[in-house]
Amino acid sequence: MSAGTIRSLLMGDKQADRVVPPTGFTARLTLFVSGAMAFLAVFALALSLASGRLADRWADELARSATLRINAPADQMADQTMMALEILRQTPGVAEARALTAEEQTALLSPWFGPNLPIDTLPVPQLIEVRETDEGYDQAGLRLRLSAEVPGAVLDDHTRWRDPLVAAATSLRRLALVSILLIGGATAAMITLAANAALAANAQVIEVLRLVGARDRFIASAFVRRFTLRALIGSSVGVVLGMGGVLLLPEASQEGGFLTGLGFRGVGWLLPLAVPIMGAAVAFAATWAAAHRTLKELT
């Protein structure tokens, strides 16, 4: 099908449209179905974008950092911390190593113990934040050296708990993408059914048109145009409502964890605008195929 055919199918003229009698009921159903599907598609899209973002953020933030935990009796704590920092400074591949201050450690623990607990009376281990360079460091070598010189140090490189989180976010994204495909398929199926119903209801019209010398393209376009327009209008409304719904979702926040920040960001807001176009394209293809199947059976 050439671009010209598609254009002439979509443009058409008012008079040619009148050859097919108006059908209020199927028209409203098609509008409703494409609207509902577009609404769902917006949420699936938001979920896929957000989970993708989440996976990237977790992978990115956690990949380049590690934590060194020093468990030592209170009197040796300062010495061992100094020693560990010194070793880290000498290790190639470590960009930065910094001991967390007492205030920072208190802030980390307060969600679990409450703000009023006197943490300085507890034997809290000292934490050292390690940032890697792009090349990374030799983990085994560092562990070996630490165990020899700083017996109380435990290196935690975050990989252990990063991987399942990233995997979860990735499969969430895959699920959202599959949902979008299913929504597209379901839209195509429903519009095919509606188009078949319309074609069957107008069998006499089609026969008369064929007998007075109408080409298949003329007859098909009368139907294709209708369903494409209905899908376009319906899914536009659905997308507007869906984007409104996403707009009302809570902003990303520390307290909400990964359940917030599910909406669109920046140019991501433009992506749902493609949904009506896709919906119209699906309707176009589905009606075109249905019309041609029906017409082939006529002489």
Partner: peptide
């Protein structure tokens, strides 16, 4: 099919049951 449609434009047919829209 298209040539058939064009051919029908050159033949005027009055059908027995003359169907209209």
């Amino acid at each position: 099919r298209d040539q058939m449609a064009l051919m029908r434009r050159r033949i005027g047919v009055v059908h027995q049951d003359c169907r209209f829209l």
